[in-house]
Structure formats: structure tokens, C-alpha cells
Design a protein around this nucleic acid. Structure first.
Length: 505
RNA sequence: GGCGCAUUGGUGUAGUUGGUUAACACGCUGCCCUCUCAAGGCAGAGAUCACGGGUUCGAGUCCCGUAUGCGCUACCA
């Protein structure tokens, strides 16, 4: 049975790239009837936080990615990692390196690496030139027993190469001479990443390692470890990376909240929509169908459908209209207007509740009315936030007027000041009050007053909803009801206030 | 510096074993619909398939080189 895992390190919010890795692992497990496991790689004690772990768990839950077994915390396995390293020393597959630790400044590592490489090339020393590599075990043991500090390094063979078949990137090979004797254990006995991952993956019985392409070259080292540990090498599938619009790394530091999964939840995304969007970043279904339910994603998913080129996550900083990828925004709107109403309503409820707009009657005697409103206004909304924002006037008498709407629909025609209250007068007498009768009443009044119906319609829209755009006005009259419609048409207050605030048009 | 990976319209992607006008989605433009804005319908703009060489009757598809980007190269993960 296939066993896959998502293994994030809890050093911040859940990155959307990581979320996509989780998604692909999960889809693969569900597709093949395997298990999806979660492992928190919290070995970097300084940077790991509990809050981050929580955000990872919350994020997965939001996306609907359930894991099958207990969460594994890597830090709890440190002892096993050390044991394994020491065993390798005893077996002669690893050695103690008594060279004093070099201090490295995080900010200059990259250039340090290049400089060291150049220096090494110049003096002709290779990856195997460590003086402790062939120290007899007895002497090594003696020095260790004497309390001398040492790191443990893997003894990479002098000649040969590692190879593995990556399901996405194809056959990979790397000459041993390109691989250094990697450190397994720091001199403070802290196990390092490559060791920990391999041991844990073996321990958890992982059969397929599906992760970001940034680990593609590291995989060779890990293959070496599997071999040294005499464990079966799992299958590997590396995923193309998700890049920023400038093709650079997508990072919180540089790009802010767009890269954090929870942002999408907090800004009114429907989880299914974002999940759908994420799935399409680097993967495409065989038939080209893009709007896919969870069930369809599972059915159509395959590792073979994953591409090799990094994807750009397209968004424009400083532009609220394009704060995240246009396609993600479109997809969210698409989900909001087409998903089953009964699935949308709980989300709207949560949104209204968070903004103190929710009333219990919406689930009781006003249930049908509420469903009708949601169905009516969702047609042109992009996020769940719109229900409490643009849609506020449907749920509360306390709503804001959009400045542009006031200018366009009210101030442009001074006569509206008298026309709208007069219209209210007229509509008050309409009985029964429905979309049809309201329309008849309004049109008739427009005729009598000698103005275009559109003038009254648009003016009404702004008076009733505060907006310049929205659903068919007659539907709105009916939804809001006679009493509220009439009241709002008469309430010149916001209009006058706006008038004085805005000045001449 | 070394090694690896990638490169199809603005973005995400299709392009079967090389075969006529490079496909789809988002975005963009225009028109229709119309009380506004969406949605929807219709029409359209936008790609010399990174560049240069080859192989071939024929290459986005195969080979070589170059460029660019990204990744790894750490007693980070």
C-alpha cells in the first residue's frame, strides 16, 4: 500500500507552495487507496513555533486534507536519528569529524559556498580530503571518549554514482565526486535534515516522496543514506516550484500575506475554489476540464500529469483588484455563484456572524427569504467578504453609500431629490408588493413624471443598497420589501450628507 | 565557481510514436442582451513555440551549443 507524507517545518504560516505539496500527496493517497501522513519537521527549535504548527493543521483542515495517522513530530525522534548515525560510524559507513566547527553567517552562506568551492578547486582538494575520514575507529572512539567534540559525516564512496528515477523529472544521476561527505550529526549531537528525513521516512514506511523540486539534488544524498542504512529506496516525485511574478522565490518577507494559505480563508475564499486553483498549478487533468470537484480531482489526478516548469503565481502588489492571481479570484467567484446554495449558506452565515449581521431568524422563519437573497446577490460576488461588504444593505439598515454611486446615480440629476420621495409615495400604495407590481408602479410613475425609468431605477438602487451596481432592481424591491424600500427611498439623509461632503459634481 | 533542472501568447496549461492554419482556461478589446454591474452569447487582439546551429522531405516535438531563470552546493530546513 502506498504511504505518502506532507512534512512541513513549522517556521511560519503555511505557504501556498507547501499547501499544494500537501494537496498532491493527499490526492495521490486517496487516488491509490494509500495513506496520507503528516509529519511536523520541528527540529529547528529556534525557528519552530507552536503557532505555526497550528496554522498548518488549520490550513490542511480548511482545504479538507485529512491525514490518516497520528501526527509525527520529528523532534521526538532525535534519539533514533542519533542512534542511526552512531551505528553508521560503528559500521564504518560514517566517521567522526573532529575539525572545529566553522562559524557561518546565515546571510553570507551563498557567497561563502562559492568562495570555498573556488578555493578548493584551486588547491586541488576534493570532497574526500577530510583528514578524519580514514581515522581508525579505535582512535576515533578514544578521542570521542576523551570528550573531544565531533560531527558525524557520511563516508561517501570515492567512485561511482547515485541514480534514481524521478516520476516527474525522469532519470537522475550524480557522480559521487559531486557529493560531499554530508554531516549527519552536528558537534552538539543535533541531527541534520537529510538524516532525519530519511530515518523518519523509513520509520513511517513512506513509499512515495512527493515534495518540492528544491529537494531534487538533495535526493542523491538521501539515496546514499537509504543504501547505507540498508533500507529500500522510495519512489520520488518532485514538484515544480511556485514563483513570484518576477520569477523569484515567493516569500512572506518579500510578498507578504498573498503567500500564506490562511490569507485566502480570511479574505473570503471558498476552500474548494482555492484547492481547485492550487491543483492546477503544475498539474493538469488529461481532459482539460478545469473546474473540478474534490471527487473529480481524485479521479483524474496522477503524478504523470505534473509538469516540470516552475509556475508563476500571478498577482499585483498594491492593486486591490488583483491582490492575488486573477484566475484564483475568478474561480472563487465561479464557485460562489454556481455551488449548491445549501453549501454556500453556512459560509455566508459565518461571514455575517463575524460582522454581527447574522440573525437567528435567517435559519428559522426567514429561512426561505435568506436563501433567496443569497442566491440573488451571489451572482456578482467574488469572495465571501462581499456578503458583508457590498451586500450589507440586504442584512442591515446601517450600511454605507458608495461615493461613486452617489455621484453617478443621485447627484447627476437634481430632480431626484423630489422624484425619489414621490416614487416612495407611489410604491407605498402598490398592493401586493412584488417585483412585477413594483416594476409596473415605477414605470408608470416615470411616464407620468416624464423621466426615463432608468433614472429612477438607478437612483433607487443607490438609495436602497448604497451601491451603483447590483441585481435587477425590481428583485431588490421585492427582497427588501415594501416597508424598507419605501423608507430607504425617503431617507434623504445620507444623500444630503453625501451631497455636502462631495460638493458639486 | 561546480552540478542539476527548466524555457509554448500577459498568467496557468494542452500539444499522442516529429506531419498541413499551435489548442484550452484566466485576463484583455468590441458587440449583443439590459435598469446598473456581473453572468451569458458572439466576434477579436495577442506566440516567428528563449536564441543559434544541426538531423530530416518535414521539428514546439530528436541532437549539440548559447542565453536566461530557478534549485542545490551549510555542523539551515
Amino acid at each position: 500500500m502506498n504511504r505518502v507524507r506532507f512534512a512541513p517545518s513549522p517556521t511560519g504560516y503555511l505557504h501556498i507552495g507547501a499547501a499544494r505539496s500537501a494537496l498532491f500527496n493527499w490526492l495521490f493517497a486517496r487516488k491509490t487507496g494509500g495513506k496520507f501522513l503528516l509529519r511536523i519537521e520541528d527540529t529547528d527549535l529556534q525557528r519552530s513555533t507552536e503557532e505555526s504548527t497550528r496554522s498548518i493543521i488549520e490550513g490542511l483542515e480548511w482545504l479538507g486534507l485529512d491525514y490518516d495517522e497520528e501526527i509525527v513530530f520529528q523532534s521526538k525522534n532525535a534519539e533514533k536519528h542519533r542512534d542511526a548515525a552512531h551505528r553508521l560510524v560503528r559500521e564504518g559507513q560514517a566517521y567522526r569529524d573532529f575539525t572545529p566547527k566553522e562559524q557561518r553567517d546565515d546571510s553570507t552562506v551563498k557567497q561563502g559556498i562559492a568562495e570555498r568551492a573556488r578555493a578548493q578547486a584551486a588547491e586541488g582538494s576534493d570532497q574526500r580530503s577530510n583528514p578524519y575520514r580514514d581515522l581508525p575507529l579505535e582512535e576515533s572512539d578514544r578521542r570521542a571518549a576523551a570528550g573531544e567534540l565531533f560531527a558525524v559525516r557520511l563516508k561517501v564512496p570515492v567512485e561511482g554514482k547515485t541514480q534514481f528515477e524521478d516520476i516527474v523529472y525522469g532519470p537522475q544521476e550524480r557522480d559521487y565526486s559531486e557529493i560531499e561527505d554530508l554531516v549527519l550529526l552536528r558537534s552538539d549531537t543535533h541531527p541534520l535534515y537529510n538524516l532525519s528525513v530519511v530515518i523518519d521516512d523509513i520509520e513511517m514506511g513512506i513509499t512515495h516522496v512527493i515534495r518540492g523540486q528544491d529537494h531534487l539534488t538533495n535526493t542523491h544524498k538521501q539515496v546514499l543514506l537509504y543504501q547505507a542504512l540498508d533500507a529500500p529506496v522510495p519512489h520520488f516525485a518532485h514538484l515544480p516550484l511556485i514563483l513570484a511574478p518576477n520569477k523569484g522565490k515567493l516569500s512572506k518577507r518579500k510578498h507578504g500575506e498573498v503567500v500564506s494559505l490562511t490569507t485566502y480563508r480570511d479574505r473570503g475564499f471558498v476552500a474548494a475554489a482555492f484547492r481547485n486553483f492550487l491543483a492546477l498549478l503544475g498539474w493538469s487533468p488529461p481532459d482539460g476540464k478545469e473546474i473540478l470537484s474534490l471527487q473529480e480531482l481524485i479521479e483524474k489526478f496522477s503524478l504523470e500529469g505534473i509538469g516540470r516548469a516552475n509556475a508563476i503565481f500571478n498577482f499585483q502588489e498594491n492593486d486591490p483588484r488583483h491582490w492575488t492571481d486573477d484566475k484564483a479570484l475568478w474561480m472563487n467567484a465561479e464557485y460562489i455563484r454556481t455551488m449548491p446554495l445549501e453549501r454556500l449558506i453556512p459560509m455566508v452565515k459565518a461571514e455575517l456572524r463575524a460582522n454581527k449581521l447574522w440573525r437567528e431568524e435567517y435559519e428559522d422563519e426567514e429561512r426561505a427569504w435568506f436563501a433567496k437573497v443569497v442566491d440573488l446577490i451571489r451572482q456578482r460576488f467574488h469572495t465571501l467578504k462581499d456578503f458583508s461588504g457590498q451586500g450589507r444593505a440586504y442584512f442591515s439598515d446601517d450600511f454605507d453609500f458608495d461615493d461613486a454611486a452617489i455621484k453617478k446615480n443621485l447627484l447627476k440629476e437634481p430632480r431626484l431629490k423630489e422624484l425619489l420621495p414621490a416614487l416612495a409615495e407611489r410604491l407605498e400604495k402598490v398592493e401586493p408588493f412584488t417585483a412585477e407590481t413594483a416594476e409596473a408602479g415605477l414605470r408608470q410613475y416615470a411616464d407620468e413624471a416624464g423621466v426615463k425609468a432608468g433614472l429612477l431605477i438607478n437612483g433607487s438602487r443607490t438609495m436602497l443598497t448604497g451601491q451603483a451596481v447590483g441585481p435587477s432592481m425590481f428583485e431588490v424591491f421585492e427582497i427588501l420589501g415594501q416597508k424598507r424600500s419605501v423608507e430607504r427611498l425617503r431617507s434623504g439623509v445620507p444623500w444630503f450628507n453625501a451631497f455636502s461632503a462631495l460638493g458639486d459634481v
